[in-house]
Write a protein that binds this DNA or RNA. Structure first.
Lengths: 355, 355
DNA sequence: GTGAAAGCGCTAACAT
DNA sequence: ATGTTAGCGCTTTCAC
């Protein structure tokens, strides 16, 4: 079973040409006689040849791989019941991340954009200092040509590490800690404004909001945008309860809101998961959605459709944004683009039943 | 900025030793004078050296990377609103996959088990013939040393392709189309039995089930196990509605069940997502869970805890199973294990509020 | 249009 | 215990 795999040399011998010619045919370089091309193709077929990626990478200095990193911290909540001791933190982080269908869309967009180039993402979690180092090392080794980073918390040091190491990287969303890297982002304030205007237009007069974590830009901006829009329409005071972008935190925030403001008729939650939690609490408190209280979410993740009632929400074009990240990263890797760039997308309101 | 990265040669020169010695220090091979070791470490530090993974892979014939493949088909449902034409199918597949928190747990377990070896998974979706070929090619190129495969549909040809190509691979769950590969699986029938006995023990007498897709082993076995257990306890007839392991399909199945059997007092859904859908329908039909109808799910994914009421469910130790996949794959790659092996895990009942 | 030959950076067998 | 050396399989000048 230790039969050596066929190499370029073997194909060349089989085809009666030189290695260089076979290489040219494989890499689609012109200036190769069509007849010889065919001969070579047949030789490749006959020998069952596949190029060795390590050898290729060694000379091209390209891994043809990118890292898809989810950065955050392992110690936010402790709802683990996992297996192997020290592994728990890690485990729960990854599981928690994918509990938000938003990440499924990111993965989806990234994989879709990478596939045409026959590339695939290496999935990494930067949930500790050590993990950060490991990721930087991974890139420095040339195992991946660059990184796509989605951060879930404010203190994330990965972006600056990446920038300091001069490694190609593109972020999803502007980092809380500024770093000279390219990123794609959403016009969060515009999205929040859409939500505010929709609630107002449908007649809501006592509106509150479940905000995202206020130490990350997305959380801040969605809140600021919502407040501004409400104020412009004559509602300078908006009750706020801060959540952590999880369903559970949304439910808890809703409980707090209800305790202080029992007569609400509209709620804007800064993401769909929290909107879902809020809907549950509202229903359990005997309020009907949207009849008694209208609810608007944010993201338009699959949770919005799974929710009962289906959520009216602010759509973030995540797949497009992810595809743009891939494009920017490629340009950085190829050296076609040098300075940090940012691309901001516009959200749009998707009206369903919850508001 | 085109400053050449430091190589072993540079470090060797800096430390005044040979490349071989530096290599030994880096790879932790004994028989190196402690004094020299220190000298070398300093030289590494000073030069900022990082080993080049391509060069290393070329000689070790190891990529130190494994593929994590989700196999399925892109054309099950068409709830896409995605971006780039041909990319849609792909997009929706990846997003759909991660809509089930079960996969988050798989990823979590895999990443956790890989991390101690400084390895990371390359994420791939085998949702078409072409994608399958790409994956096999990827492995044959040596870009990854082996594959961990989770399949979501019955006709999946990837396992047999992998086996035919002699590539190291380990599956999550026994494949519908038999293939000579190792796999980890759950004693589904035992799990279904636990569910049946729990429902019976709490007094349910009119019990139905929302089964999984009946063309995959997990779907078949959970149904068979449930029916058998019910029959053994004097309930030879159990109404069944087939679902597709999605929340939506669970809701639809529940509607069908209710139409034909309005007086149910217990339901076993073959996974948590379907149980969640079933709960929604039950509640919307005016039935209380668990007071009027008790519901038991399967998996113990995060959906079980997010559900209202929280689901009583059959826990699948997914993270452990994933860690075992990694171990088996490593053994196959190292050549320590030759024939296909299977490891079957035992499920356990987790009692919450839904039953 | 094609071939010869020089490495890419590393590990490992062998020599010392 | 350390150094020497021969590749690993490929791309890419540079001749022809």
């Amino acid at each position: 079973m230790s039969r050596r795999l066929p190499t370029l040399e073997d194909v060349a011998r089989e085809a009666g040409v030189s290695r260089a010619t076979v290489s040219r045919v494989i890499n689609g370089i012109r200036n190769v006689d069509p007849v010889i091309q065919e001969t070579v193709r047949q030789a490749i077929e006959r020998t069952g040849y596949t190029p060795n990626s390590a050898a290729r990478s060694l000379v091209t200095r390209r891994a043809e791989t990118v890292a898809l990193v989810v950065a955050g911290t392992g110690d936010e909540t402790a709802d683990t019941q996992g297996a192997q001791g020290a592994q728990d933190t890690q485990d729960s982080f990854a599981a928690r991340v994918f509990a938000d269908p938003f990440f499924g869309r990111v993965v989806s967009g990234v994989v879709g954009a990478l596939r045409p180039r026959s590339m695939h993402p290496v999935l990494m979690f930067a949930d500790s200092e050590a993990a950060c180092e490991q990721i930087v090392a991974y890139l420095r080794q040339g195992s991946a040509d660059g990184a796509l980073v989605v951060s879930t918390h404010a203190e994330d040091k990965l972006p600056e590490r990446l920038a300091a190491a001069g490694l190609p990287a593109v972020l999803f969303a502007r980092p809380a800690l500024a770093a000279p890297l390219s990123y794609v982002d959403l016009a969060h304030q515009d999205g929040a404004r859409l939500a505010a205007e929709h609630l107002l237009a449908r007649g809501c007069r006592r509106v509150a909001t479940v905000s995202g974590p206020l130490d990350v830009p997305a959380g801040q901006e969605r809140l600021a945008g919502f407040r501004d829009a409400m104020a412009r329409h004559g509602h300078p005071y908006v009750p706020v309860a801060e959540g952590g972008f999880t369903q559970q935190s949304g439910a808890e925030a809703m409980v707090r809101l209800l305790a202080e403001h029992p007569v609400l008729d509209g709620v804007f939650a800064a993401n769909d998961l929290m909107a879902q939690g809020a809907c549950q609490v509202l229903r359990e408190s005997g309020r009907r959605v949207p009849d008694d209280v209208a609810v608007v979410g944010f993201d338009d993740s699959s949770a919005a459709r799974a929710c009962r009632p289906p959520l009216t929400t602010v759509r973030q074009p995540v797949e497009e944004m992810a595809a743009t990240m891939v494009r920017l990263l490629r340009e950085h890797i190829e050296g076609e683009r040098t300075g940090p760039t940012s691309v901001i997308f516009e959200p749009e309101l998707v009206v369903r039943e919850s508001a």
